[in-house]
Write a protein that binds this DNA or RNA. Structure first.
Lengths: 135, 135
DNA sequence: TTCATCTGTAATAATAAATATTACAGTAAA
DNA sequence: TTTACTGTAATATTTATTATTACAGATGAA
């Protein structure tokens, strides 16, 4: 797993704190301590998914596209997910082995099950909930 | 996340199928389609945790150290876990930002919560359960 | 209008992590 | 005493992630 979930969560938490006021990618990147281009890239992804709105040009920046109470951590998870939480099998198992032949299918089924469990939990926590934990 | 969970699960599933009979690292590695040294390394880890027993020398090999019904996927998860399921924050956030200052702590708390959820689910599935899904 | 400040995005470089490979000492059975 | 294994370390290779640079396009303000 890469660091995209923490980054996306950080971004959305920041934006939930500023409300209408636009926040720049420079401030966001500075808070996370990552490169501004990388921040904009993740923001771009979140914007395509309808979580963030943006305004170009001078005095441009970013804001949440909907209320923090309407965004759950399941949305964030799905926005950044690029592989199964417990890791993908990278090699093609031996088709001549009874276990090897079937394991990828069984693993996928297991992962679907785990994802449901995780999404249920994540779906019960909103950005507002998370942001409210801060002083 | 790396591929260790699928590998460990594959190994334990294989061993659950052979019972007392010892299985070599070559066969195991061949079924997964990874390097034998890598297989032995993961096996070594699982052995240190009491899940696998081994025998050196000619006609040596591996077997489960306890019944497949006594090993859960939570054991496997904990055996291979090296970082949070949703990814570690790698940069030090800005301590001058109200969010940056606290986010790592809040993230850790969230991750603890998610881990509990995941472990509960994984703890309800044994290697026997998983292996029984195979024809 | 033109300058300054911002987003949007791509191309590339650098770094870090994961995996593969090689090697060989040690152990036990035949 | 040879053969077939495990155990483990060192190293190389590959892949994934993150950082950097660059610049076109948008917008507001002087």
């Amino acid at each position: 797993m890469n660091g995209r979930f923490p980054i996306a969560l950080h971004i959305l938490t920041l934006l939930s704190k500023t409300g209408e006021e636009l926040m720049s990618s420079d401030y966001i990147a500075g808070s996370i301590n990552i490169n501004p281009a990388l921040a904009r890239k993740e923001i771009s992804n979140l914007r395509n998914l309808g979580l963030i709105s943006s305004k170009e040009g001078k005095s441009g920046g970013y804001a949440l596209a909907k209320a923090a109470a309407q965004i759950t951590l399941a949305d964030v998870y799905q926005a950044v997910k690029n592989q199964p939480v417990l890791g993908a099998a990278k090699n093609t198992p031996n088709p001549d082995c009874p276990v090897g032949k079937q394991i990828n299918k069984k693993l996928d089924e297991l992962y679907d099950d785990l994802d449901k469990t995780l999404l249920k939990k994540l779906g019960s926590i909103t950005i507002e909930d998370f942001a409210n934990k801060f002083d």
